[in-house]
């Protein structure tokens, strides 16, 4: 099971008493404002959780894996996430069952 926007809205309804519509809008806006900031080229720093940074990638050679044809991968801007100390420490404590 994965955490989804619906789960988050449900929790805002249960814990904070927002109504269902307000809770849904709040979750939607939370992610939209982060996207908007990144789209404008501005990093997002959420203390205790982590930072969404932007990186400029230069053009590099690539290949169509199906045909083997060489095609350049154009220069692009990408989002990277750097977890904060607090989140890293909490996750590290997870013993895990897969490994």
């Amino acid at each position: 099971m994965a955490l989804t926007k619906a789960d988050m809205a449900e929790e805002l309804f249960d814990e904070l008493g927002l109504n269902k519509r307000e809770a849904k809008e709040m979750v939607e806006m939370f992610f939209e404002k982060i996207r908007g900031s990144l789209e404008e080229g501005s990093q997002v720093k959420l203390s205790g959780f982590g930072n969404f940074d932007l990186r400029e990638k230069k053009q590099r050679p690539g290949r169509n894996p199906k045909t083997g044809e060489e095609i350049p991968i154009s220069a692009r801007r990408v989002v990277t996430f750097r977890p904060g100390q607090k989140l890293k420490a909490r996750v590290e404590a997870y013993a895990g069952s897969e490994q």
């Binding site: 994965a2 955490l3 988050m8 814990e15 939370f30 959780f49 989140l87 996750v91 997870y94 895990g96």
Partner: peptide, 15 residues
């Protein structure tokens, strides 16, 4: 609350 839910999910191994 949203950030805490996200941290909590990851801390318990959930995606």
């Amino acid at each position: 609350c949203i950030l805490e839910q996200m941290s909590q999910a990851l801390a318990s191994g959930e995606r």
